[in-house]
Amino acid sequence: MSFPKRSKKIINLEDAVKNINKGDTIAIGGFAIYQRPMAFVREIIKQKIKNLTVIGVTNSIESDILIGANSLKSIETSYVGFEKYGLAPNFRNYAEKGKIKVIDYPELICIDRFRASQENLDFWPAAGLGGTDIVKLNKNIKKFLCPITKKILHAVPAAKPNVAIIHALAADEFGNIISPSYKNMAQSLDILISRSCENTLVTVEKIVSNNFIKKHPNLIEIPNHRVKSISLAPFGAHPTSMLGKYSDDEEHWNEYIRASDNNESFKKYINKYIHSSKNNDDYLNKIGGAHLSSLLQVDTQK
């Protein structure tokens, strides 16, 4: 007897990015300078999708490169910076010219905004925001009195991303995503944003068999029914790091920062690595196999 076949969720990266529309509000996985879905972001730039809003927590190169490529109209976050690599050059430049709208939120409130979306609430009740310019400059944050105690609180709008983009370790062809058992903020936030949105697009380092998934069912924090598509993108977080797989590429970060010094050199960078690259493989070839190998880590995850 023959049964109907399950649907596969693998599509190529180019087609996955077609799910992003001009003007969308996107959540980009990872945290600060860790595990950003960079291959996906590069493809957004290649397809020249504009007017996007990033809803984030702590942001770095994944947003800075979108800003420099004129793809973002606004960003809502607690931080845009490169941590050990300093300030985010395009973010700073565009903000100071008034060319990008920046809406500031405190760091953990940024996460609470996704927790609100996860629970399908329209706001998160926050204490401790009174008197800050965060509240004063943001009409979407509303002061209210706790209906139980009459304490002063602020209703902070839920994140409500249209699309969530995540780079993960592995998935089977049905879209069950493997999360490592040892996680930090980057991987935890990926899980949270996958639960706050119905359009989760995932890139993975590796496609594994369904049997492999069945051997590790406890690692499925993002199950296939929460995933819209998966696309193969090895080294898809480059130049950011991937926990337990590879370190961040210091050389490339510095190349990016040098390129961001002026419009001309940034355009050249974008042309070289994005517009004149056919796809992610082509990009990786430009970075070089030996160089990429040098970033590989010994997996010491417990």
Binding site: S78, Y79, G81, L87, A95, D104, P106, I109, D133
Partner: peptide, 26 residues
Amino acid sequence: SVCIGNHDKPRVRMVGPIFLPEHFSM
């Protein structure tokens, strides 16, 4: 920790509020 000058077109833009609002209230 956010900016010098007008917020929407600042003379200097810094990283953002990060965790400071919580430090100062919680």
